[in-house]
Design a protein around this nucleic acid. Structure first.
Lengths: 339, 339
DNA sequence: AAAGTTTTCGGAAACGCTTTCGGTAACGTT
DNA sequence: AACGTTACCGAAAGCGTTTCCGAAAACTTT
């Protein structure tokens, strides 16, 4: 476990450690031949500079922290891959932590990352109600932070978000244009910006085409399959049978799908279904699920780029917000007139 | 971005930095009152010891590295959650890196982790053919390393694996007992231990019940949906229609399912299907897919425990291998006599 | 050939902490 | 009253680097 240090290399070559350091950092005040000689011998000896010591003195770690609510679903992993793609290229390492949708854990994670002197953070908020103070404080200190997907409008930081409003509108519009009337919306946690925006999009579409609805058509379900299934089951048992359902994500939509199938109703004949935040599941369920796909990898890449900009400007670049577009993938679950 | 250091706290209280350090490390040679006083003031000042400096001097980072091939599918993320569950409790941070199934990236990741002085690593090998030298070297140096899922039998390290042989046997046996005869196996990359074991299990079951098969029944497909679909399509076009298929994982099985459905054949009436390494998809496809579920979280927890044991014994504990059991979840995709 | 420049290098401080060593004060012991 | 113990604390070395400062060596210039 003994590491070879800069001293070993220096001694071996009868030079000072400063010189070895210079060779590795490609400084101007070193002779070309000395440099190549040092690098060559160091390589032979298997010497690699200790990043910990380097971090300590440089006050720069080339690490960035990423905090996400979970990574069981493929959504966040895909974003993370996008993030890594950009950051690895610039020599950064990415530390991934998950908050398990818990605000307290989220804070602990952030403090850990801070203690470990990450050069910046990319955060997606947990679904719990939260207090912004710590984030505001972080930003005031000039700490580079970028939020994505789950953001809070009251935090003046760079953000990259999906245009939930617009695409919820399109998803709903699609159902309207197919001729469905009684259109329900299974919404995510309604204190989340993203849910509010989807609800707004849903309302906007119905309003525009003068499709009647009541506030009871909008039901808060959270983000899990069981919730979608339970709510749908309840609706059916109550005899409240929608013609179509627009769910806040695929998972909830598929939960609803299960309930509908169990009730021996047909999709889309009896009830049409549209998901959101398309997952791989959309294409393998039966019938295939209409959904709105998000550019997850792109979201990660954009977040990383914004962060790099913050970092290189010492955290005093003006915050930017990037809004990403998606695509509506129409599949059988919402095609009027299928069997 | 200016951090409060131990010096600031010391100056404020008119004590030496050693004393502050002692307070934080709960050493014996400090008076109780001094300690509580220091802790209190430090808390007020917002001081937290700098982990980087601590790592440098202690030669111990309380970080462990995890290298997985990917985390798009839920399998590895679940294992990672299990790992974190154990390690966080012991004050360790977990750094996750992915090799993208590429051996070169895997090595780079490992070196990065090594440079960052992680106290140990938990690794699942990429599917590329690899050379063991670097791992052997690591182990020789006494570096704590645990492998899981994708292991190599020639590396004498602690491992936690699934009993692929046994459960491939059970999966196949199930098909046999349902009365299917012409049973194909879509195998993963055959140089992987895990694939070989599954093939052995498959053969064993057929041999035991004297169900005839040829080597052509075993087809290497890799791990992706497209591959399962392509192979199945080819089989059907060639008129080589199996009565049942045992696939190396759910993804491949579902790929096959797609091909079968496209050919307008019925599952399980025309072709029965069994997956492996059960994913959430098993329960949402139509018909639901029979599969073997693995205790992913448990696998992570076990790997973490083995690693902790290696770490605390200075890397000279004898390597242990833990073999985990699974469960066969029979669903409609393999029930003989369904419509 | 002396002086001024530039190139190249070594010494030493610093990053923020832990830990060893030694010292002082307070106490008990004879 | 002299000594040994114990409890507590400070000084300083050290972890492996980078970087500032100054000096020697090598060139240029006059």
């Amino acid at each position: 476990m003994k590491h070879i240090t800069i001293k070993d290399v220096a001694r071996r070559l009868n030079v000072s450690i400063s010189t070895v350091s210079r060779a590795f950092n490609n400084k101007y005040d070193i002779r070309k031949e000395t440099r190549t000689k040092i690098l060559q011998v160091a390589e032979e000896m298997g010497y690699r500079p200790n990043p910990i010591a380097r971090k300590l003195i440089q006050q720069k770690t080339f690490n960035v922290g990423v905090v996400v609510p979970e990574f069981i679903n493929s959504y966040f992993p895909e974003v993370i891959i996008g993030i890594q793609e950009i950051l690895h290229k610039q020599g950064y390492q990415v530390l991934v932590m998950q908050s398990n949708e818990c605000y307290t854990t989220e804070l602990i994670n952030i403090k850990t990352l801070e203690d470990n002197m990450v050069d910046g953070m990319i955060i997606s908020l947990s679904q719990e109600i939260h207090n912004n103070d710590y984030y505001l404080n972080l930003l005031e200190k000039g700490y580079p932070v970028v939020f994505f997907n789950r953001v809070d409008e009251d935090i003046p930081a760079s953000k990259v978000v999906f245009d939930d409003y617009k695409w919820a509108y399109f998803a709903t519009e699609h159902l309207v244009k197919q001729g469905y009337k009684k259109i329900y919306h299974l919404s995510g946690y309604q204190h989340l910006n993203l849910s509010q925006n989807r609800i707004r999009g849903y309302r906007k579409a119905l309003d525009k085409f003068s499709v009647p609805y009541t506030s009871e058509y909008i039901i808060e379900t959270g983000f899990y399959m069981e919730e979608g299934q339970a709510i749908m089951k309840k609706l059916l048992e109550e005899g409240n049978i929608p013609e179509a359902v627009f769910a806040t994500n695929d998972t909830v939509a598929i939960g609803a799908m299960k309930a509908i199938k169990k009730a021996r109703l047909k999709i889309p004949k009896d009830i049409a279904l549209v998901g959101f935040t398309e997952s791989k599941m959309a294409d393998i369920v039966d019938p295939p699920l209409t959904s709105v796909s998000q550019p997850t990898f792109e979201m990660g890449r954009k977040a990383a780029e914004l962060l790099l900009r913050q970092i290189s400007s010492d955290g005093f670049a003006a915050p930017e917000t990037v809004v990403l577009n998606g695509r509506l993938n129409v599949r059988d679950s919402s095609r009027k007139g299928l069997r």
